[in-house]
Structures are given as C-alpha cells and as structure tokens.
Nucleic acid binder design. Structure first.
Lengths: 343, 343
DNA sequence: CTGAAAGCGCTTACAG
DNA sequence: CTGAAAGCGCTTACAG
C-alpha cells in the first residue's frame, strides 16, 4: 500500500536521502557523487521499483507535470481527436492532462480555470469562451489558445486555422460549381473564428459578383441543442426556397443541416449544394458524401502541446502564433453526379 | 503569483494555522472554536480568495481528489461521450479526471496505470485490456471497470451492458424481418464483451433454426486500422455472396461495413440487411439509416462515477456489478422500404 | 565527495 | 477554547 520513499532507498544504501535525491535526479556528476555510491543507489531504486511521489515533488518544486486542457465539448469529434493527440504527446514528455468541457459557457469555463489553478497545473491549453481573456491573464502560467483567440490581446500564444481562407475556398468552390444563390448558416457567436468564417463567405460572394445580403446570412443562437438547430434550419430553408447552396459554419450545423434538408425531401447536391466546415466521419460516409473544409487535427494537437511545453521549458523560439491552412475535400454534395443547373 | 496560504490567514486573523485549518475544514464546532474567531477567519479567507493547495493537502492526507479514467480510445464517440459524463459528474463531487487511451494495447495500458498510480489518484475507472487483471489487483485503490470485465475475478466492480441480450435482440430482429443468411463480423479479441456478442448471435440463430456455422462468423484482427477493416470486410462479402444480412459487433466495424457494402454497389437493407452494435450519429443520418443496439451512454457514465465515489467514501451499499440493457433502434437498414424477399 | 537541515502548505494527535 | 509541533516525501542551499 504505502509506497517506497527516498528514505527507504537511503537506508538500504547506507547514505542520506540527499544523496539519493541527487543521484535519482541525474545530478550525480554535478554533485560529484562517487560512481560506486551512484550505482548502488540506482540498483536499489530499480529493485524496489521506486516511483517518486509527484505530490511531494510538486509541493517542493512548484511543478506538477500536469497540464490543463479546456475544450468546448469533449464529445465533439474535433475536440476529442485533438484531445487524443494532446494526451499522447504530453505523455511522451512526462506530462498528464486534466480536462474539462466549457459548453462555450463563460461561467463553466471560469469554474474550470479556477479548479485547474488551485490544482497547480503547470500550463494550459484553452479553447476560450467569450470574455475569458481577463480570467486567463490572471493565470500567471503558460497558456496556449486553440480554435480561437482574442484579437485585442496581442501577445497570446495560439494555434488556430485560417478560418477566412477556409470559408472563402468553400464558397468559391460552390460558385465555381454553378451554384448562384449561396447562403451561410452560422451561429450568433461573436467569437473571432465565427466572424472570420462569415467574412470569408461574404468576401467570396462579392469577389464573384453575387449578392451577400442579410437574407443569405442565417445566424442561430449558439446555445441551442441539436433538435433546436435542426428545426431552425428547416424553417429557414422553407422560407428561402430560392437558395441553391448552403455553407455550414461548423460540423454540428452541417450534421443538423443534413437532417433538415432530408426532412424537406430535398436532394443534397442536386437540389441544394452544401459544404460544411470541419470534416466528420458522417460527411465522408453520407450518401451523397458531403464536401467540407477539413482541419488538420493531428497537426493542431501536436503544435499545441509542443508550443506549450516549449513555454514551460523556457526554450521557446518558434513562432508563438500559428495559423494552419484548411483543406477543401471535394465530395458529392457540391459536385453532384447530375450537374446542378441554374434554371 | 504565489498563492494565499493558511499562514497568511492565520497572521491576519491573529490566530494559529491550526485554528484556521479547523475552521476551514468545517471542524469549528467539533473543535469548539469560538463563533467570533470562526467568523473572522471565514471572512478573511473569502476576502483573500483563499484556495487550499491540493498538493499539500494530498501529501498530508493521501487523497488527491483525482480519478484516473482509462478508455480504449478517447476519439471514439462512445468513449468520448462517457468521458464527458464522467468528467461532469466528477466535477460536481470535487474530483478531477486524468485520462488516457489504451488503444486496447496491453503495454500502453500498463504504462498508463503506472503513471496514474504514482500520481496518487484516489480511484480508477478502467476499460481493461486483456491480461490487465494482475496489474489492476496491485493498485490497492478503488477500481470500477467499464465496457468489459474479467469473468474469473469475482469481486470486481463494474458497469457494463448486456452484450448477449443486445446481440440476441439484434439478430432476432433481422431474422424476423425475413433475413435468412445472417453473418456476424467481429474481432479476434478474446475479451468477454466480444465473446458475449458472439454468443448472442449464435444463440439467436439457433433459436430460429438457422445455421450458425464457421462460415457466418468472420473475425478480424482487432488491431487493424480503418482501411484494413474495410478491405477485409469487402473481401469477406465478395466471397460470401449468399449472405443476406450482417450483424456488426462494434460501431467502428459497422462504419467500415457501410463503406464496404457501398463499394460493392450493394444496397443496404434491400440487398443486404444490417444491424450494428452501438449507436453513432452516422447510423442515424446515413441513408438508408442503420439499425443498431444502442448503449445507454449517459447512464453508463453516471453509474461509473457514482459507484467509484461511493467506494471512495466507503459508503458503498448499492450493487457492485451493474449490467445495463441495450436498446434496439429499428431503422431502414433492417426494415427496407422495399421489403427484403428471400428468393 | 556527502549530509544535516530547512521548507513547500497542509492536517492532526497531543498538550494545556 | 486554542496552539506548538510533527510529519507527508520530496529538493536544494549550505556546510564541511
């Protein structure tokens, strides 16, 4: 039950705990411990399967070798996939991950931050909610933001994707496929990533000389549930029958969109073109398959954890702000077998 | 930077750290601290926004208020959803969650266990791999297993689903819909949950007087990747054209199965009936939609964490082994619009 | 080359 | 009714 401590080793080796600590922390050379003693200690430690008590070490050094990961929703495939990469890479570097979901709720996010703070995590990877910047500023530990950032906070570290370019590419692709009345379905969220997707959409339409007015921009309250989104989308589509393609600004909107379109008896691709932000198993397997702009999930995860660990080790040299490109994955929802013809 | 400690409060209140500790831990009454002192301390603590250092407390008490969650794959929707519920409920009880994915790899699981152990987690929720029972037995802390258990370890705590009943129901449903040559696609895993699903399949066929021989049981190596599964399934279907329905034993097999069936140009439901274990957004949204036996994810998560916390509080009274029922969700893949007719 | 001692921030048995 | 002291298991500045 009771673990092996440094004392046990010291006793068995006939030396002081100090010496054991030096040897076990690889400071034998530096502290000029004799080869002989050093070897003896190492042998005993491995015989006893000694594992340092991280709590004691943390209390003394102030480092817990733990990082806090705050995502919007761990059950969302994008965040779950990033979390997996983060955990994997952290593990390789000797760090463990404490996680939590904000549901994009400010209060919940603050609660998570507070708990992680007094758990003394060494650093944070945070998917911020709105207005979380003040709270984050009081953390006094390395923080890397993901998915979104605060435009007015200049010196923060983050890994995000090029939302503008992604949306722009997606919408341009639709236009090039012959769709002429393209709408965006997005949320009311005032967060930067959503703003940029909207801007990309508007810009693409303008560049192609197409109308980008209010009636092709549908904003849904971001705190609706799945059935709520589906119902709202259905309603919007019903009252805007002249639309011939939709750009969905998030994966869950895209998923709800599929349900809505189908419930109206419309055929995706031919009746109504569609592209969604963010790839998902569903989009690949759906029939017809759904075109999307995919995030480089693996790379996002790797960059996040490495940027944070570099900060923790004070070896930071690489750029502090990374904007990754998105990849347009063309599928049937925008390139129907029967070409879409404007009537 | 430096946090507020109990000493700071003691100083400001003009009492000893001991007294502060008693008051803050709600032992004022028990220790007969005067109302006056008590109130003063509480006021100062909240003014200073005192947060106890969990490391120091943990070192002293041996409790870290942390639980370890080991899943097979946090990126798999089933595990991600369970993880979310677990984290949520743990949070309500003042616990944080450290997590990791085993990929069903024994060595990786052992590594995770070791790290969590010397991080002094108070208890574990574990999706065990094969042969992990010895390792788990040496943990000397409360453990609740999920998704599977060790049949030869009688006194373990677990929350699982009734795999036999689920498979039995799924296959019976197929037979009742008129499918006559039903196969199972499963993995080579020797784990109990997979065995039970196989038994449910065999039993259902036997009960209905249908053949349940080797040629309707296809076992795939469980460590293949997605493309690997898809390829193997495609091959199996090609060489067994007489089959008219398939029961897929896991959600990822079902997903790969959809790809395989479609790549062969077969129509799900009419050409080939299908039911998958475990629900998934894809199954609901696929066209045709896919019948499945769904796990009660929410309830699994809640039961897991509550069982563990009861163990931690030594208030355990409820049953230690919970087997939850599965729900058959009938969809188009087994009830085609054009009825399946045996020729 | 090695060790005694202090201290991280708590809790708790003991004393008065 | 309250406090001094020990101790959880480490690390590290200091001494010799």
């Amino acid at each position: 039950m009771k673990g092996i401590s440094i004392k046990d080793i010291a006793q068995e080796a006939g030396v002081s705990p100090t010496t054991v600590s030096f040897v076990l922390n690889g400071k034998a050379k530096e502290k000029r411990i004799s080869e002989q003693v050093s070897k003896r200690i190492l042998k005993i430690a491995s015989k006893l399967k000694y594992k340092p008590n991280q709590l004691a070490r943390g209390l003394r050094t102030g480092k817990t070798k733990t990082i806090g990961l705050i995502v919007e929703d761990i059950a969302n495939s994008f965040f779950a996939n990033v979390a997996k990469v983060v955990e994997d890479e952290a593990d390789k570097c000797g760090y463990k991950v404490l996680f939590g979901s904000t549901e994009d709720n400010e209060e919940k996010a603050k609660g998570l931050l507070e708990v992680l703070r007094y758990r003394q995590v060494d650093g944070y990877i945070i998917t911020p909610t709105l207005n979380l910047d003040k709270e984050i500023a009081t953390l006094h530990k390395p923080v890397v933001l993901m998915d979104r950032y605060f435009p007015n906070v200049k010196d923060s570290h983050y890994v995000v994707v090029d939302n503008f370019q992604g949306a722009y590419t997606a919408v341009s692709h639709l236009v090039e496929q012959g769709y002429k009345k393209v709408a965006i379905i997005t949320t009311t969220s005032a967060q930067i990533q959503m703003q940029q997707r909207l801007e990309g959409f508007v810009d693409a339409l303008k560049k192609h000389g197409l109308p980008a007015g209010k009636n092709v921009i549908k904003r849904l309250p971001f705190d609706l549930d799945r059935p709520g989104f589906t119902k709202e989308i259905t309603q919007y589509l019903q009252t805007n029958k002249d639309l011939d393609a939709i750009f969905f600004a998030t994966n869950y909107l895209g998923i709800c969109g599929i349900e809505s379109i189908r419930s109206l008896g419309l055929h995706i691709g031919t009746d109504l073109g569609m592209v969604s932000f963010d790839d998902h198993d569903i989009f690949r397997l759906h029939s017809p398959s759904i075109t999307c702009v995919a995030q480089p999930v693996e790379e996002i995860g790797r960059r996040l954890i490495h940027m944070l660990i570099e900060e923790l080790d004070h070896t930071s040299s690489s750029p502090k702000q990374i904007v990754l490109p998105l990849e347009l994955r063309k599928r049937e929802s925008s390139i129907p077998a029967v070409p879409h013809l404007d009537v």
